[in-house]
Design a protein around this nucleic acid. Structure first.
Lengths: 196, 196
DNA sequence: CGTCATTTTGAGGTATTTCAACGAAGGTGG
DNA sequence: CCACCTTCGTTGAAATACCTCAAAATGACG
């Protein structure tokens, strides 16, 4: 069990991978900086999410905390040992990997939309359901910056800002401070966040 | 082992899932039709790829063959049995699932690009590396239609056509017939297909 | 050889990107 | 505790790229 303050690196892209991580509490972003200077956020991970899957022995993304985070760090050595003792454990990891796959597919669906407002709405709904099992809670915590949101949605920062404004002007969502939103008109919000 | 002719459904979205599939030979597309009438292709699968992962007991996408296809169909019943006999098998599935995850992440990277030409180049490179281990083969088979490509890249059909034309006019790629391309200028092609 | 799906091309509309400049917030150090 | 400073957010105007609509050409298939 390790603890990280907000805005610190858990690991850096390209470094040799030796562990998997499972979030106990907090939120992280997984991203890569491209040669052009653009940053692409591949995923946000929340409590109980698995991250650290490597390719060719190295981490492909940098993972950075957005909030204070507690993670279970599982070294590969320890894992192979655990797998031998308890074969059922592999199934656990398979399930968690499939969950990551589903989230990535959902990200794909978001990116497939051509309208900025729709993409933003889908991210907000993701954060909403992530918040708690209490489905339909109108208050949505937004742990990341708008710049992060832009990099996740594949939009420019300005486009995210304008989409936020439009959601407000239309009375669908209200942004209070930088890290909270409130769903005003659930009906129209769900209509927007539907998979077109 | 089952065999499907080209352009036939392997299974339909929403039907109860009872099997996983591993492609022995051929190419399939995995897609969903949205209420708006749009079609989103989530992935193309090739030899040795795994597909059929379900959510809540039902297939989420429709899978249709692009070419004649041979698949190994593994019913869940048979799988649980096999897993008990050979725990190492689970690891095989974990690896294949991670491979699907990587492909999905790659798709995300493609969709993150804003230029149609760049997206098309990345798909062509995917098909190129898929073709054979002979990396750098200039001839690229294109088993899907341009309409499929559009639905995969999140572009309109016309945008795909114009991107193809531009690649030709610039002497980077040559399209011969509907199902083959040839890389003319490898240098500039790789530059385009890089993760900008 | 005819029919149908697919592809191609053109013209106009629209959304996002870019560029630039300003305002606000949060963190740091004195 | 305040001032500074860096990052983040906001707004406007112009350019670009893609989308949509419409019509014609090409190719596949029976």
């Amino acid at each position: 069990m390790r603890v990280f303050p907000a805005r610190t690196d858990v690991y850096t892209a390209g470094t040799p991978a030796d562990s998997l991580f499972i979030i106990s509490e907090g939120v992280v972003k997984s991203f890569r900086d491209l040669p052009s200077g653009r940053r692409r956020i591949a995923a946000f991970f929340f409590a109980r999410d698995l991250f650290g899957l490597a390719r060719a022995g190295r981490y492909v993304n940098t993972v950075q905390t957005l909030t204070p985070v507690r993670v279970d760090q599982l070294s590969f050595d320890a894992l192979t040992e655990l797998f031998e003792k308890d074969p059922g454990l592999e199934l656990q990891f398979l399930c968690k990997t499939i969950h990551v796959l589903r989230e990535t597919q959902h990200h794909n669906i978001i990116m497939g939309r051509r309208d900025a407002v729709g993409r933003l709405a889908m991210l907000l709904r993701l954060l909403q359901t992530q918040d708690g099992p209490a489905d339909g809670h109108p208050d949505v915590p937004i742990p990341m910056t708008k710049s992060d949101i832009a990099n996740y949605l594949g939009l420019s920062l300005e486009a995210v800002v304008r989409a936020s404004r439009r959601l407000e002007r239309q009375g669908i969502v209200e942004f209070v401070g930088r890290h909270h939103a409130r769903i005003i008109d659930r009906q129209r919000f769900e209509a927007l966040a539907s998979n077109v």
